[in-house]
Design a protein around this nucleic acid. Structure first.
Lengths: 165, 165
DNA sequence: AATGAATGGTTGACGTGTCATCAATAACGT
DNA sequence: ACGTTATTGATGACACGTCAACCATTCATT
C-alpha cells in the first residue's frame, strides 16, 4: 500500500479554491478589458509588449519564445497571424541563416503604445489596487517561491548565449 | 485630458510578474502531472470532480456550467467528448423536457477515484506544501478579495431553482 | 387556446494551442 | 572535405474554447 492519501485540509482547500477562482475570473476580466479597449488578445499583448521592451523593437524568435515561456511552435503560429494583421514582420538574420527575427511594425508599435496604459489601468483596477502594501509583499513572495520551485524542476533549456558569458 | 497614465511601481511590477509566472508554470505543471498520472485534462478533471461531489453523481447541465463558471457551449462540447470516451452520459429530465442531466458512468467514477489522490498530491507538491500557514491565510485572503471584487461586477445569472430545489 | 418572449441545450465556424514532423542550416568529429 | 548530429523555424493534424445561430420547450400574456 502506498501511504494513505492526504486530502486537503479546510484551510488548504480554501487556499486552492481561492487561487483557482481568482485565476479564472481575473484572467477573464483582464482579457475582456484588453480586447474591448484595444482589440488585442492576451497573447497579442504579450508579444507586442516583449518586443516593445526589446532592443530596436526586434528579437530573435527562439529567444522571444524562451523569454515568454512559450513553445516555438506556438510563437510561430501566433506570429503568422500577427504578421497578417500587420503588427509585426519577420526578417532573416544575417549571421545565422537558420534564425529569423521579429520586428514591431509602425502600426504594431502604435497599437502597443495605445494599449499599454489601458491595460495597466485594468490590471490596477482588478488586482493591484485591491491589495495593501503588505499583501503585495506577501503575494510576490509566495509567487516567487512557487516559481522558484517549478523552475528548479525544469532544466533551463541550455541557453548557449554565444559570445557573452 | 484623461489623467496621466500611472505605470506600475517596481513593487507592483514584481507582484504582477510573480503572479503571471506562477500562474503559467503552476498551471502547466499540475496539468502535466494530471495528464501523465491519469490521462485526464484539467477540464476533464474539473467535470468529473464536480459530478463526483453532486448528489447521485449527476447534475443538470446548466447548473453544472454555472457552478464551474463555464459557458454552456463549452460544457456541451466537452461533455460530447467525454461521453464518447465513456466517462459520462447525458440523460433527459422528466419534469422539464428542455433540461438534460449528466451522470458519471461507472468508468467515470472509477477514473475520478483513481485520479483524485494523485492530483491532490500534485497540488500539494507544487503549491500547497510550499506555503507556510501564514502564507496560506494571506493568500486565501487575497484571492477572496479579488474574487469578491470581480464577482461584484458581474451580475449573477438569475438562478431560478425550480422543481426539486 | 394562441402568440411571443424567455430558457435549456446543441451545433458549426472560426481562432488558437499542442504535438509530431520536416526542411534548412550550423556545428562537430573524423 | 565528408557525414553525423543538433538547432531553428515552419507546417499540418488535431483538440479545445468562443461566438453566434439555431431548435425545442416552457412561461406569460391575452
Amino acid at each position: 500500500m502506498t501511504s494513505e492519501p492526504r486530502w486537503l485540509t479546510d484551510t488548504e482547500q480554501r487556499t486552492w479554491q481561492a487561487y483557482r477562482r481568482m485565476q479564472l475570473l481575473l484572467g477573464a476580466q483582464v482579457s475582456r478589458d484588453l480586447n474591448a479597449d484595444s482589440g488585442l488578445s492576451d497573447a497579442d499583448y504579450d508579444v507586442l509588449s516583449h518586443l516593445g521592451f526589446s532592443d530596436r523593437n526586434r528579437c530573435q524568435i527562439s529567444e522571444l519564445a524562451d523569454r515568454m515561456l512559450w513553445s516555438r511552435s506556438r510563437l510561430s503560429h501566433h506570429l503568422t497571424r500577427m504578421q497578417q494583421r500587420g503588427l509585426v514582420v519577420r526578417e532573416g538574420c544575417a549571421s545565422d541563416a537558420r534564425c529569423s527575427e521579429v520586428v514591431l511594425t509602425a502600426e504594431g508599435l502604435r497599437t502597443l503604445e495605445e494599449a499599454a496604459p489601458l491595460h495597466v489601468e485594468s490590471v490596477r483596477r482588478n488586482f493591484i489596487d485591491l491589495l495593501t502594501p503588505e499583501q503585495h509583499a506577501a503575494f510576490a513572495e509566495i509567487g516567487e517561491v512557487v516559481v522558484r520551485h517549478l523552475s528548479a524542476g525544469a532544466e533551463p533549456r541550455a541557453k548557449k548565449s554565444r559570445g557573452a558569458a
